[in-house]
Design a protein around this nucleic acid. Sequence first.
DNA 1: ACATATAATGTAATCGATTACAAATTCGCC
DNA 2: GGCGAATTTGTAATCGATTACATTATATGT
Lengths: 330, 330
Amino acid sequence: MARISDVAKHAGVSVATVSRVLAGQPGVSDAARERVLVSVKALDYHPDLAARRLRSGKTDTLGLVVADIRNPYFTEISRAIEDVAYANGMRVLLCNSDEDAEKERFYLDMLRDENVAGVILSPTLSLLSRFRACDYSFPVVLVDRCAPETEADAVVLDNIDAAQRLMRHLIERSSQRIALFYGTASATGLQRLEGYHSALAAAGLTPQTRAIRPTTTEARAALIEHLREHPLPDAVVASSGLILLGLVEALREAGLRCPDDILLAGFDDQPWTRIVTPDITVIAQPTADIGRSAIELLLARIAQPEQAMRRIVLRGELITRASTSRPIQE
Amino acid sequence: MARISDVAKHAGVSVATVSRVLAGQPGVSDAARERVLVSVKALDYHPDLAARRLRSGKTDTLGLVVADIRNPYFTEISRAIEDVAYANGMRVLLCNSDEDAEKERFYLDMLRDENVAGVILSPTLSLLSRFRACDYSFPVVLVDRCAPETEADAVVLDNIDAAQRLMRHLIERSSQRIALFYGTASATGLQRLEGYHSALAAAGLTPQTRAIRPTTTEARAALIEHLREHPLPDAVVASSGLILLGLVEALREAGLRCPDDILLAGFDDQPWTRIVTPDITVIAQPTADIGRSAIELLLARIAQPEQAMRRIVLRGELITRASTSRPIQE
DNA sequence: ACATATAATGTAATCGATTACAAATTCGCC
DNA sequence: GGCGAATTTGTAATCGATTACATTATATGT
């Protein structure tokens, strides 16, 4: 492997000149620059990144900490982030916290050891409750989850509004008893619960909720149990795509038909929600935008560490489908 | 930030002793070791990884290059790989090639610059055709795609066998005209095509295939066109999960019912294949095992660079569901 | 032509660890 | 007590880049 000194020797200049050429700095004659570039090609020189990072103190590396990359919502976000990162000459270390505060701390510590330039984080509930951006040695942008009072750059959906709109959609279709299955592991689930409560209260309806861990299997078991123990609801709603899938499985198993026996709706416009029978009414999240906004926020913060905190709130889109198709009541 | 010299001073020893303690090397008195560990705690010392990597020439970093992390097959594999990697104190840089040989080369070059300890790669067709592990400065393990003659560690499904079994399943159910929609971008699609051809030839049936780029939208368009231009097949088969989704959309749009009008089957047991109506017969791939095997192979190769190449061939599992439920013919 | 400003180049210190080698200490045993 | 071996410890070189500072070459103005 060629080192910078080899290039310098080959080009008949000093290492400083080589370094300046490669860094695109001014103060190098065209002749010297030309010779250096030729030598770099000739020797197939590639700078040692470890040395560069040691000297410069910068790593060109970002961290991304999500609950689980297998959740299509995070998959999509992660892809958008990585594309932008690589396009800007940065790398991304992906970490899965599994909603586990301990794992989350492990990964955040690791990212600090890596001296990352910044981190995009979807925090566990436990961390979010005491989160302060200033507690970290690197800039942090929160994604998907954020409390109203959190002092941090963030990109989130307006969960309360989205949940309210979804509920009003159901209420207009004469649903009286709407059961919500929501994930307790994240702030997102709780905010959607809040929107649900306020919409039902506004309509004078009694809420009916089940708090669960946000997994498909747990959602399925919860609905099956719910159906056994309660009179049939008019509608069931999932606070996330994973939960929605569990509800579909359970309804199928129970032999209930949508929208005739019961209405069904949820969050996350995953591809399969279009092709099941019936296709399902959902709140679609602009996942690619969320990811892109998050990394743009992070890159801006890295460039300008002292600028004011920014929060980007995106609006969910209500996609009406057959699972809630029923005449609208006045 | 505390440096190793600070720890040495605080503990009243030399930097060499501190380094030895931290590396777990022998030849340090218990008293000194104790004092060092206390000082490390007291100063909250964390070694500078850039410096360590510069000096040691090792990076503890792996590369993972897949076509697209949004493909659930790769999502699953990637998660398994990352879990094992972090458990072994390594990091993973994830790269999406989008089946584009140029992007692939860009990322492989970047990983070389990063001086990664090894790479797990699902190669594009173009790269696979001329792939030689010895062309790279780091060990490479192929995953998902591999040619019979490729000289490389690899973890793959027995695609020919799996496709044959799937075809026999359909043929036994009296399908005469079986249309295969296969992805041309990867070796995997072509191997499944091969299995399809041999199974149909053995049964004396005429093949009916459409080569497409492996995306849902393209698959959907292809089937719609196919139905317009050809007499109705007895069965349609997808060579991957993404394609299968497109076929489902198209059948729905055409108003065709499974299994009454036509049989349907494919690859990849994605969660939604269980909940659509009808649920779909598929070849399930042991994705978690594939990922785990791949990184275990890679770690072994890193530890033992000279050992013989190993290829792990896994068997797909045929999961029979309603989309192919029809009486078996003698 | 000379003084001075400006541009180009080079030398050597530096980042923070690891480790070869040398030096110092301790130990066992006669 | 003293000698050699084994253990412990320290000093300084090293990894490969960046960059402050010094120096030399060129340009400008009168």
